[in-house]
Design a protein around this nucleic acid. Structure first.
Ligand SMILES: [Mn+2]
Ligand SMILES: [Mn+2]
Ligand SMILES: [Zn+2]
Ligand SMILES: [Zn+2]
Lengths: 146, 146
DNA sequence: ATTGCAAATGCAATATTATTGCATGAACAA
DNA sequence: TTGTTCATGCAATAATATTGCATTTGCAAT
């Protein structure tokens, strides 16, 4: 177990502006929670975190906000856990995947054009038009190996 | 929407024997449901299917059975939906991924050593020991494109 | 066949996650 | 400042998932 969380500096207002979504108080709260928690978290986990900061936010609202953020690609939903996290590679165009350490929970995002291409090929060979794909790798991170 | 479901002939007893899991009535029921439904289905979906056949099975039991089957790799859990389906490529060793048509629900399994290798490389480069990985591709199948 | 044990199941309770419809409120463009 | 559109709150409900414990059952050893 580690606590090597690097604190990302996230300007919530800036993020919202770039995403072209409406800038609202609840959205800023969710963004700030995601930034401060700095690891994948469930919608209700966000709600609990906000409660500890003495702020309340309706769970339905959190679901809807996360859905909007996900559509705008500023957050990702990690399918295996149903948790959400801020995109850490906003500058890298294309498909993003995840690495997850099942020991300490560390989550890392990666961008692999090769992987993207390969999966497009797999889809094509099967007669599919790829519209979306998800890649989640789990294992032991470098810290937990030792 | 199509109904090009190819009926797989599944010998539930045989499957259980090969998996080395205990051969029980509930397990045979779940296997038969999965075989007959022939597409990814939720645990409660299995329960409902069994009910329509006038058989009952406890939901907790279904969860536990699916977990055992998943560990034995005779069924897979599709992370994006939380649904389960029989493995359709039992003879192909290694990692299996999925293609899913969001229009008709058709699901196809694929086995790609190249993809597996690539993801092992991605993990290694990030300092991870890969222990598991999931690949789910969604799009339009060849039937739904036309 | 009988027995004994480990493993599977049923049951009850509870927790967690997710969705829907509708009334109200807030953002922001005009 | 105003008006429209979109977001939020609230209430209800559905769907998914887990836990502990008592009981039953598969199956291996006798
Ligand atoms: Mn990303
Ligand atoms: Mn398979
Ligand atoms: Zn770790
Ligand atoms: Zn289709």
């Amino acid at each position: 177990m580690h606590s090597f969380v690097s604190k990302p500096i996230v300007d919530t207002g800036e993020l919202l502006k770039k995403s072209k979504l409406k800038d609202t108080q609840p959205r800023r709260m969710v963004l700030e929670a995601l930034a401060k928690i700095n690891m994948p978290v469930s919608p209700y986990g966000i709600q609990k975190w906000l409660l500890k900061k003495n702020t309340e936010l309706n769970a339905v609202t959190i679901y809807r906000i996360l859905h909007a953020f996900n559509s705008a690609c500023i957050v990702h939903r990690h399918p295996c856990s149903g948790h959400f996290a801020l995109c850490t590679l906003p500058e890298q165009k294309g498909h993003h995947g995840f690495l997850h350490c099942h020991s300490c929970g560390l989550t890392e995002e990666f961008c692999s054009p090769a992987l993207c291409t390969l999966e497009h090929g797999i889809a094509k060979k099967a007669g599919f038009d790829l519209e979306n794909h998800m890649n989640e790798i789990s294992g032991l991170c470098k810290h937990c190996k030792s």
